[in-house]
Design a protein around this nucleic acid. Sequence first.
RNA 1: GGGCGAUUAGCUCAGUUGGUAGAGCGCAUCGUUUACACCGAUGAUGUCGGCGGUUCGAGCCCGUCAUCGCCCACCA
Length: 890
Amino acid sequence: MTMLEKTYNPKDVEERLYRDWEASGAFRAGNKPDAKPFTIVIPPPNVTGSLHIGHALNNTLQDILARFERMRGRDVLWQPGMDHAGISTQLVVERQLEERQTSRQKLGREEFLKRVWEWKAESGGTILRQLKRLGASCDWSRDRFTMGETEADQMSRAVLKVFVELYAQGLMYKDTRLVNWDPRLQTAVSDLEVENIEIKGNLWHIKYPLADDPERFITVATTRPETMLGDTAVAVHPDDERYRALVGRQVRLPLSDRLVPIVADDYADPEKGSGAVKITPGHDFNDYEVGRRHKLEPLSILTLDGKINDKAPAAYRGLDRFDARKRVVADLEALGLIEKVEPVTHAVPHDEKTKTVVLEPMLTEQWYLNVKPLAEKALDAVRDGRTKFVPERFADEYYRWLEDIRPWCVSRQLWWGHQIPAWYDDKGNIFVAESEVDARAQAKAKLGRDVALTRDPDVLDTWFSSALWPFSTLGWPEQTPELKRYYPTDVLVTMFDIIFFWVARMMMMGLHFTKQVPFHTVYIHARVVDERGQKMSKTRGNVTDPLTLIDEFGADALRFALAIAAAAGKDLRMGRGRVETYRNFCTKIWNAARFCEMNGCVRVAGFEPSKLKSTLNRWIVGELVRARNEVTAAIEGYRFNDAAGGLYEFVWNVYCDWYLEFIKPVLGGNDEAQAAETRATAAWVFDEVLRLAHPFMPFITEELWRVTGEQGPKREAMLISAPWPDYAKIARDAAAETEMNWVKTLISEVRSVRAEMNVPPASKLPLQLKGASASEAEWLKRHNDLILRLARLETATTGKDLAKGSAQIVVGQGTVGLALEGVIDFAKERARLTKDVQKADSEIARIDAKLSNKDFVSRAPEEVVQELREKRAEYEAARAKLLEALKRLD
RNA sequence: GGGCGAUUAGCUCAGUUGGUAGAGCGCAUCGUUUACACCGAUGAUGUCGGCGGUUCGAGCCCGUCAUCGCCCACCA
């Protein structure tokens, strides 16, 4: 027989138990073919990543759900996998190459990709190992990768298929327009990947001379003067009197010496600046639109790496865009064309990853997905409740974005990613197909002969494949048994910052390709910030490493700390202090187990929680039922903090602080039958606690389950596969509850009086309880042993000389030379209940008054009257309950 | 410029249909009673951001203001 160690040491058990779980096959989906499936797809972490505390939270919550539903008998699939993370991964490997004095350009595409795959094989598993340390019960046999190309993992095929179909449906198309461009990586990025950062800059007011009257000027203002090299017009508002005469005339663009027209366009705001605005369609999104309206050809004056190109005057060619800005300003100054310079703060688009590179609107040809029709379906699915957000308010954010969605630029000028399945001939014909063979066949069918084809070098936005994740991981486009069984998935657990990037796009793609929502519920959890409330980031250096915390306190402590702090959708501050607190909770549970062990509290066969004789035991069973119901309802409602909190409260403040203290005198007493029943009850309740706690603290509970399983009747070998408690058949004993609450109150009050009166702990005093009701007197007698022990009394008896309803205790009068007198108000409870009855009475009277007012009844809408009647009935019912409770007190 | 969230004990935060304000940490006093000092007992501390309103009754509902934070937005 195993004896429990004095303290719980997570390091000794976590690794072993995780291996046992895996070996038992408990993580695998499909174990219970007759059970209802329950599916969660993991938000795939980046291969480049390592587990940060946000992942720890995200995966803890998913694991709680997975383990909970598994115990409730569902066939659980928690689908794991990783994301290829296009840009991040490419950058990581490029940086490595840089250290070795080489580059991807030198290696060539094929060799470079080989190196990335090698890197993935080496480093990609880190995060999975970390998830295992956390206790994540994913079905690892089904591990997937967004660029998977193996027999089992055909993620890439799904991506090709989707692209080809979208193209065939006319939703995927190429277009040349302005796109957010990263001049450092030389790739397009989508609108979502742009972060507008407020920075200090200047607003230069520049004078443009009229072409036919060089002495007259029209002033425009800009924060980016170098773009004037690409100006193709000046716009003024059509109703602006100041400029009406100038519309149709031209200005001579300084530095470039080109003539550009003055056009009338609503875009020009007469209130702003001079009312005239320079138009640069090649380098500004608004100007692009203005240019289109006036048939102005966009003029791009930048190279793809952000230098001035040869469309600009020779003096500026080859200059970096920021150097060009200085040069332009200097030259304008020299010419006396700067009217004034105002310092301003304005939002400048930066790349969202590094937040350092200033993005440039750039005219390039890219692939676009027309998401508008997909968005309509995605909106409807949330509007009609097929998918619901928890908390609900996030649905608004989702609506807002989808309602105003623009075409999604899906091509990236990178190497690492899904290469776009489009081939071109030398005439510029496009053939989109799942393979080169198919593309050739298409070309031959169209042109009547074999032609040389070259594949589009670009790759897809990483989020494109992520958008397919819920169904591509299950084998789509094949109608696999897994897809039929586990799709749609049940709940997506994620954070608010990727609602647009990921959630909305999964909804769109899921509905478009499977006609079903990808998940019924989207649970948005908190963001983890550091102890000072700052967002954690590598650059800030304030990242808390969950593994360090696991090493120090154990995985269960970290998990519990995260769960109990995880009120939906709010920032969550996390540091080692909190984890330490819940390490202490683990220790508490461990010690409760040791108490049971030392006192022979062993489970017995045929234990019947409904047929207990002792009030004490009936009471704790009732409390357990209450806790179980609370925890269950809270998890079902994704109120993880309430679930963990309810469990904590029951284990610590009810089971340990009261019940175990209560039973000490019973276990040592001479009523052997009661002692035996109590040992069995203590063991049974503890066993149930292990079940309730398991989703939150899988390791310690599993270990205690193993040890306590060595004695008593046989039960499930592993807790992970044991059933969740179901107490539908257990009736809670309200009388036992009232009785034990009275005992608890009595003990607390005596302790309180003792402390206030500074009675030494060693002094055992006699207690006389005066004015007790008949049942109170009985309770005092029945629980005399434990009252004496816990309140440190010599005797506890009743007296009868005070009025009922104002019960008093008189403690040790004359015994220690002090007269201790404290009022215990059992009357307090009566007063409260009485007050509530009175409230109900007054409420009923108020409603009656209204209802007897004939004028009101005849004029008010039927619903209002009906509502009042219902309310009255409710108050009647509440009143009856209160009276019953009052009666119980007597 | 729009939208959302937050404001509760010294700190970090709970508070789900409106009914006498809670937890953890911290603090104070006491305690080595055979599970646990990673513990137990007892206690102190709150005009629930301000001001109005609805209600018999508001931390919770309505209006308004203030401060902080986040998201979205094409402003020269």
